[in-house]
Measured scan of single mutants.
Amino acid sequence: MGFKLLSKLLVYLTASIMAIASPLAFSVDSSGEYPTVSEIPVGEVRLYQIADGVWSHIATQSFDGAVYPSNGLIVRDGDELLLIDTAWGAKNTAALLAEIEKQIGLPVTRAVSTHFHDDRVGGVDVLRAAGVATYASPSTRRLAEVEGNEIPTHSLEGLSSSGDAVRFGPVELFYPGAAHSTDNLIVYVPSASVLYGGCAIYELSRTSAGNVADADLAEWPTSIERIQQHYPEAQFVIPGHGLPGGLDLLKHTTNVVKAHTNRSVVE
């Protein structure tokens, strides 16, 4: 069995187990497998329904001669939608809004960016022009300005110390501490036991640490421990890039980060 097929099978099995364990909360999309990078042309966006009122959005972007996937989250909030992270750029984010209108038909009224990198804030200006209120932590807003990236308009308070959590509509926002970046936030959907790890969490097929220019490698494993301790009931975990899975993604990420750190020390 090929690795790609095995990865998709694991996603399907995880979703099936969740649907059985929580039949009222989960209505997993039966329309197909989780979209992969090879299936999404740059400039297009796919939506994948995880649970009743919960979707991931998947886009792709060219970077350094390669094409990478990027995940975000959409959560229903009454007759409105909360968006977590842009679709990595203005063109993708405009396509995301169009796809949401086509498939869901509810307005996106608020959006949260989970850290300051372009795959999370690139497209904020498109959201703002569409009347979406954009939010991020003060740290993310400051770092985005320093980096020359787009800056969300509103500040999220109460997320300055490791372990801080605040309720934001249908989700809980959690600051686990520094990891992929010093400002990275985690998003949890309690009604569906869905954990969105953003770039602080890796997919299972990833074996290298990737972009760690703004990471705190020493603190990252401790931050992941905080996530595990705060959300032990999480059933569906979405990484910032690639295929979702279960809580095993947290341990896998820790292993990859520690291996990278150990290699760096040896070198």
Rank of each mutant, 00 (worst) to 15 (best):
G72A: 01
E233S: 13
R142H: 14
D52P: 12
V189M: 03
S22E: 14
V121I: 09
V11N: 11
E147Q: 14
S193E: 13
H57T: 05
Y34M: 10
V146S: 14
L82K: 00
S191E: 13
L249Q: 00
S155M: 12
I100R: 01
A59M: 05
A21R: 11
S160C: 06
T134A: 04
S56H: 07
A215Q: 06
D216W: 04
L13V: 15
R141P: 05
V124A: 08
A209T: 09
G177V: 03
G242W: 04
T86K: 04
A94G: 11
D183N: 08
S137T: 15
V187D: 04
S113D: 03
A94K: 14
G78E: 10
I40L: 15
L247N: 13
V146E: 14
F63K: 07
I227D: 01
S139D: 13
N71M: 00
V11L: 08
A21M: 14
H260Q: 12
R142P: 03
L24Y: 15
Q229I: 11
E172H: 05
I227N: 07
G169I: 04
P232Q: 09
A165H: 12
W220D: 02
G197M: 01
Y12W: 12
G72E: 01
Y202E: 04
S264A: 12
F3I: 15
S56I: 15
S205G: 10
K8G: 09
P107S: 11
A21D: 15
S208V: 13
I84C: 03
H57K: 00
K251M: 13
L185C: 03
E225S: 11
W55G: 01
P35K: 07
A90P: 13
Q229E: 13
I17Y: 12
V45E: 03
E145M: 14
E80L: 05
H154E: 10
A15T: 11
N211R: 07
V256G: 01
L9F: 10
P41I: 08
L82W: 05
S264N: 14
W55N: 02
S193C: 05
P221H: 06
D125G: 10
G32L: 11
G245S: 06
L24T: 15
C199G: 02
A25M: 15
L13Y: 14
A218M: 11
A178M: 07
H241D: 04
T182S: 12
V189E: 04
K258H: 11
R141C: 06
I20K: 15
R128N: 13
R46M: 14
L195S: 00
L5R: 13
I104Q: 01
T60M: 14
Y196Q: 00
E99C: 07
L250A: 00
P152Y: 00
S56A: 15
V166E: 07
G53Y: 07
V265L: 12
A178T: 07
N149R: 11
G246A: 08
S27P: 13
A213F: 09
G148M: 07
S264P: 13
R142I: 12
L185A: 02
T253M: 02
A15R: 09
L82Q: 01
A215D: 06
Q49P: 14
A19V: 15
H260M: 06
N149T: 10
T254G: 10
A51R: 08
L13W: 11
V112L: 10
S70E: 04
R110G: 08
Y231G: 00
T153Y: 13
V112Y: 03
S56R: 15
K8V: 15
S70H: 04
V126H: 07
R226G: 04
A215T: 07
I100E: 01
V112D: 07
G148L: 05
E219K: 08
H230I: 08
S70Q: 03
D52V: 11
V37S: 15
P152G: 02
I100P: 01
S139L: 13
D29Q: 11
A59T: 10
